[in-house]
Design a protein around this nucleic acid. Structure first.
Lengths: 189, 189
DNA sequence: ATCACTTTTTGCCAAATGGCAAATGGTTTC
DNA sequence: GAAACCATTTGCCATTTGGCAAAAAGTGAT
């Protein structure tokens, strides 16, 4: 909870009253390893902020293969399609790959915060924009790199994930097979 | 110009007066093939909307290779870092690869529109969000595909570009070499 | 039509990656 | 510790892609 407030304050100022409002609406949610946070086709119930753990975002391509699209690690806001008003039904899965702790808000409570705190919208917008930029940059870089470069980049950008995430997920994220990644790791040593 | 208004109206309503305001601030900008629209390190002067032509976004990786990150085709808003107030200095190049026509606004005029038209901010925000989503989805998919799949996807998503864009740019965008792409094309026929 | 110039294709071979299955290593449960 | 289970590594070979250079095709100007 403090983690969430601390994170938000990087993007704009809030007074004590506003912080109290946010805190009063927030609930904690625990996810165990392998538990879903979102499921494709199922409406999303709340807005969440990941304070501890790692979540994997994946979908199934037209060959039925499971593709890991990215990882969400600590201190990331998980927003449903960027709008609060409409019910959002994702087309991908979000699944905990470690035990996780989130701070969550119901759509209604989030709406209340938006309506009460003048700057909230712009803070959230800034966060979204930042996350989008990071995602685009990360995914873009991968395309032009070979396997080794992708992996070296990965361990540099997600140093905390390398040892917590199964190899197969990392390989899928990097767009290479698990055995290739294993060989790449051997060559790097 | 009509194209721009038409595009914007998909994301929200504007009355005649508001449209007139926007129109009055807008200027047309022509770019010839190979002309820069943005240059890395040079402050961006205006907000633009591409009505005709294709622009290529590229940067130089740490090996000095030119990497095409994406293409901007007709009916896309080109925004400087998503904020109007601060001067934005891009780290990549935007260069016309056909003759182009843009509708442009100075930062000051854009600011004026933002201050005058209540819903403008949210319209722009929606557009940005849409573009971000598209970019992320496109780049993400590429990572998990082989060369042939990437190219087939490309011609499906950018049917209008295939015949207007040099092969080398497409290859760079897809993360494969020009000769590989040429061979892939041969195999597809 | 010719020349100069650029883009695309092709040939050749090396390197990287994929696919599959077996082997190894690690962890948990009994 | 043994057994069962899962993740990772490895071997083997096929396929894909890269790198480089030459050939072919396309474009534009005179």
């Amino acid at each position: 909870m403090e983690k969430f407030i601390e994170y938000v304050l990087q993007f704009g100022n809030l007074n004590k009253q506003q912080i109290d409002l946010i805190t009063s609406k927030a609930k904690e949610l625990e996810l165990r390893n392998e538990e879903y946070y979102w499921e494709a086709g199922k409406a999303v119930k709340h807005i969440g902020f990941l304070t501890d753990g790692v979540i994997r975002v994946f979908y199934y391509n037209n060959k039925g293969e499971e593709i890991t699209r990215y990882f969400i690690d600590e201190n990331h806001l998980i927003l449903s399609g960027n709008t609060v008003d409409e019910v959002y039904t994702p087309s991908e899965y979000l699944s905990a790959i470690t035990d996780c702790t989130l701070v969550v808000f119901t759509r209604k409570d989030w709406r209340d915060i938006l309506d009460t705190i003048i700057g909230w919208d712009s803070i959230v917008q800034k966060i979204i924009t930042k996350h989008h930029g990071e995602k685009i940059a990360r995914r873009s870089e991968l395309v032009s790199q070979d396997g080794t470069e992708r992996y070296l980049d990965f361990i540099q950008k997600f140093p905390t994930l390398v040892n917590r995430v199964p190899l197969s997920y990392i390989a899928s994220y990097l767009g290479i097979t698990q055995s290739s990644l294993s060989r790449i790791r051997k060559n790097i040593r």
